[in-house]
Design a protein around this nucleic acid. Structure first.
Lengths: 202, 202
DNA sequence: ATGGTTATACTCGGATCCGAGTAATCGGAA
DNA sequence: TTCCGATTACTCGGATCCGAGTATAACCAT
């Protein structure tokens, strides 16, 4: 009952709806615009999905094809615009996404569940590497964010601030856990380390 | 190049592999066991996907059907066991998941990207509700975690600690942002609030 | 014994996802 | 002028995902 029977589920649809609030556009232009604005960091953007999503939005009546024009001899392009219904739904969808925390299943959470199987050394090594990579990612995003702040109002880069906070927490957790493993504070019951001695030797 | 061309992509496969390290099992029992242990908080578990994933793991040679027995007149059940290859792959998969932060696209991140469209009041209201829900979720998980700690070693409930940390960060961000909106600290450029006056009146 | 509920165990088909492919045009260098 | 690579614009089909459905059996009360 959280949010399942939504007509269009792919969040890329929200991005499309968002773009069309500004002006009509054809799918290829949507992709280009999203990438230009760096929104492909927040939305998973692939060509295939984009066209599927656009079709789904049209079926739902939230956007409508305006014209089907051929510029030169290139493949036809269909320009879409939002409908009044689409405008409403954009806001409703957004509102619900913000209000209700969705249960998601980040890969790392699943992996941590079986952390024990790597043994203390294996687990510490893996988490150390993750921490390093996280530091780099954070640095990159922070730099981009600062650059962006010089160009646009802060409201439009809030998502980067949120992402940074979360990643910093992940980093802190990884570092802390490595520390506990090294210090021996984290008890490691026997019989839970998966033995790979047979085909080791890399 | 992050981790795409993996033979089995659904993380539920990791859970299956994990269970089979302990003992052979048929799919229905896997589902039951995962739910019993509360692992369905970390892995998205649906019947349909489970059977698909088991088939995929078998195709890949990481697990193998042991026997196909009929107990009573109920539908046949096929018991699977991990193969040596499956044991290795379990560890390799786990290791990679831990080392390399995957780029995921949490729904909330996408939504925050368009926070502006709700206007200051709308955005604050939505985030306030989210904060409330997050507080309840956190309370629930914290209670469960404490109860679990009395039963099993901490190593086996680490994922709850991680999840709690992340959720607390999300909560803090939401609260802080509400605060800034209320205080007027967060500049709200005009022309970005989607107008829904036409069909309002709810 | 009859009926109702719960548990066992899996199948099915539609929806979705997405990378690789197709196909035409344009700009510029040789 | 002709070739090549980049750009524009979209299609296709296989893989995956998953909720709803099917079918039997065990348990219990009436």
């Amino acid at each position: 009952m959280t949010s399942s029977r939504r007509k269009v589920s792919n969040l890329l649809g929200l991005a499309v709806l968002g773009l069309l609030q500004e002006s009509p556009m054809h799918p290829h232009a949507m992709a280009a615009t999203l990438r230009e604005r760096g929104l492909d960091r927040s939305f998973k953007l692939t060509t295939g999905s984009l066209y599927d999503v656009v079709r789904a939005l049209e079926r739902a009546g939230w956007i409508a094809a305006q014209e089907t024009a051929r510029v030169g001899g290139r493949p036809e392009r269909t320009v879409y615009a939002h409908t009044p219904l689409g405008k409403e739904e954009f806001v409703r969808w957004l509102d619900e996404l913000l209000r209700v925390p969705a249960d998601e299943y980040p890969k790392f959470l699943s992996a941590v569940t079986y952390l024990g199987a790597l043994g203390p050394e294996g687990a510490a090594a893996a988490l150390r590497e993750r921490a390093g990579r996280l530091r780099e990612l954070i640095d990159g995003i922070r730099r981009e964010h600062e650059a962006a702040l010089a160009e646009v109002p802060r409201l439009f880069v809030l998502e980067a601030e949120y992402a940074l906070r979360v990643m910093e927490t992940e980093l802190a957790w990884a570092e802390q856990t490595v520390g506990e493993i090294e210090a021996g504070t984290l008890e490691w019951p026997d019989g839970w380390v998966v033995d790979t001695s047979s085909t080791k030797e890399a």
